[in-house]
């Protein structure tokens, strides 16, 4: 087991290294640089470039950056003058992560529940209703759902605050719902499929032959076995939701990490692009590793000896 984990950690580090390298050169391929500005004299621009080391050959910049990265230094942002990248992530990630955790936990629970209901009532009306919901949930983007429910519950009914963050817990309800909607829908669909595969298994017949009530059969025999394939996309799902969403955070005025993913690229803030990408990548890799370990715990057949 330890060998397995060690091997996976080495692969994970390698993955992050490749990710950092590719992102570095891709960001340098973008036309222009952060200091190109007609209003600023060229001599000043040159000085600014030299300050950030952007006047050196790209390959040399790369080695400097990787050297710093090895020491854990993600560099300083160009647009947020004087702030380190680590500082920026430290300030905005907790907000996104908190919202993401709320969204994810209720999306997982509701998604699994809907999936179970669909499978148990397959091809009857509860299944059809929930499947329509799931298809809508996947098909409707948050930029449509977000403003709609914000208008309905925030402006018209005035049940919930229209936006903001950190004052009341009600502020989290709508953004968490919009953020989790796709996850609920996706989970409903895959849980339905996973459970349908389990329902026809022979050991379910054994459980029924023991005189178990249908509800107990679901909880004790079908649920755990259906969760095994569900785990596969849990890692990317956690990483994706926790990293924040540009759209949702913009709509509900939430100071999360989402907007930086977009703004860093459009302002060519190289250190921030790199820092965010590596952070996301490392987070994803770690989540996948945790899920793989979880796999063995849920299904003894794939436990590594």
């Amino acid at each position: 087991m330890l060998r397995y984990v060690l091997k996976r950690v080495v692969i994970a580090l390698l993955t992050v290294f490749v990710l950092a390298t590719v992102t570095f050169f891709l960001s340098k391929l973008l036309p222009g640089d952060p200091f190109m500005n007609e209003k600023i004299p060229v001599s000043v621009q040159e000085k600014q470039r030299a300050y950030y080391g952007l006047d050196k050959p790209v390959i040399q910049q790369y080695f400097i950056y990787m050297g710093n990265l090895l020491r854990g230094d993600l560099g300083t942002s160009i647009k947020f003058v004087g702030r380190s990248v680590r500082d920026i992530i430290g300030e905005f990630f907790p907000v996104s992560a908190k919202l993401g955790l709320i969204a994810l936990s209720f999306a997982e629970i509701i998604g699994l529940l809907f999936g179970i209901l669909c499978a148990q009532y397959r091809n009857r009306w509860p299944d059809y209703v929930l499947m329509v919901f799931a298809i809508l949930g996947i098909a409707l983007p948050s930029m449509v759902v977000g403003p709609l429910i914000r208008y309905l519950f925030g402006v018209q009914l005035r049940w919930l605050p229209v936006g903001g963050w950190g004052k009341t817990w009600q502020q989290a309800i709508m953004p968490a719902f919009v953020l989790g909607l796709g996850t609920i829908a996706g989970n409903t669909r895959s849980m339905r499929a996973c459970m349908l595969a389990v329902i026809t298994q022979d050991y379910v017949k054994t459980a029924r032959a023991k005189g178990m009530s249908p509800v107990r059969v679901v909880l004790k025999h079908e649920l755990k076995n259906s969760l095994v394939p569900m785990l596969a996309n849990l890692g990317p799902m956690i990483a994706g939701v926790l990293m924040g969403s540009f759209v949702v955070e913009q709509i509900f005025v939430i100071p999360g990490l989402g907007k930086h993913f977009v703004n860093a690229v459009s302002t060519l803030d190289y250190p921030l692009i790199m820092g965010l990408t590596i952070f996301y990548g490392a987070f994803l890799v770690v989540m996948n590793l945790l899920v793989d370990i979880l796999y063995g715990w849920v299904d003894p057949r794939i436990r590594v000896k």
Binding site: D202, Y203, K205, T206, A207, H221, V228, D299, R301
Partner: peptide, 13 residues
């Protein structure tokens, strides 16, 4: 009791 004991036993229990 059934024919194939492997498929009729719950694999994760």
């Amino acid at each position: 009791i059934f024919q194939d004991p492997l498929s009729y036993l719950n694999p994760t229990m």
